[in-house]
Design a protein around this nucleic acid. Structure first.
Lengths: 151, 151
DNA sequence: GCCAATCAGGACCCAATCAGTCCTGTTAAA
DNA sequence: TTTAACAGGACTGATTGGGTCCTGATTGGC
């Protein structure tokens, strides 16, 4: 099913939320605004910080802020930050490790064109695109968006 | 990581194998030729038959054969046959069921452009493309290709 | 008409993965 | 010094998927 991790979905919500307001925002505050449980918000933000998508400020009055505007964040970056590098199969070029029959595996490299195509597709879509895409009535209004994720 | 199911990888191997030779081929024979365990080959073939990618013939001297040449089989069809419809998130248009907050979920429809992009990317790549892509030395020769899949 | 080979369609089990939580540091402002 | 906040793990329960097996249904040969 080409499943996307649920945390990635959360990450989009969190990033969109971060894009409103100027200063840093704490994870409890984002949790309250989005309805996502606080520990999960914290986990997502840490991953996003590692990926360079948000900047963190520690200590009292700390928090997180966006490093780039939404339009400059391809969804591929978000996925990479949360789920690791985009690779359909483990033996794809760039994936860590090596399969047990590496070197004799006829599948080696076979999925590369597919990966490249997907990578490119995901790079061409930014968070701004997703933010604007077909949001149902009454949800253009900010600030108090409830739970987000499906399933 | 956008993980692709291992069975889909098997399916590509099986389909490529089926493309060699004219008559029907039995699953034990394909298993022997590819190194994939027979029950798994059977499972993959059943799914491919349900998806209309291969035709089956029951009874003695039965087996499977390709319905179309490899160049006419987009990889999207294979994925759909094995893993079900291509949908990144559960609440994507076309996915079964409905999430618990359906109707108020601001994420609803948001992933659609991403899904469409991926769908299109996968539709533009056929099995023939994958077959030709960077196969290492000595594996253009048919018949006795060993295990395929990565881990 | 019977038998053997083969596909059809499930049920089932085990391992791996992931979402989600929690705990213990470390940093920085008041 | 205290407190608010992030950093970076470890841990657990549930879900998923790979893989196997079993019981039919179908077809060709003897």
């Amino acid at each position: 099913m080409l499943r996307l991790s649920k945390l990635t979905d959360y990450a989009v919500v969190v990033l969109v939320r971060l894009s409103r307001g100027d200063g840093v925002q704490t994870s409890p505050r984002i949790s309250a605004a989005t309805g996502i449980p606080e520990p999960t918000v914290a986990k997502v933000l840490k991953a996003l910080a590692s990926g360079g998508l948000v900047a963190s400020q520690r200590g009292a009055h700390g928090g997180y802020r966006l490093m780039r505007p939404l339009a400059a964040v391809p969804i591929a970056d978000v996925i990479a930050a949360i789920d690791g590098p985009i690779a359909l199969t483990a033996c794809v070029e760039g994936a860590a490790g090596g399969c047990d029959v590496e070197g004799i595996c006829p599948m080696r490299g076979r999925w590369d064109p597919v990966n490249d195509a997907i990578q490119q597709a995901l790079t061409n879509i930014t968070l701004a695109d997703m933010q604007e895409a077909s949001i149902p009535r009454a949800f253009r209004t900010p600030v108090r968006a409830p739970i987000s994720v499906a399933e």
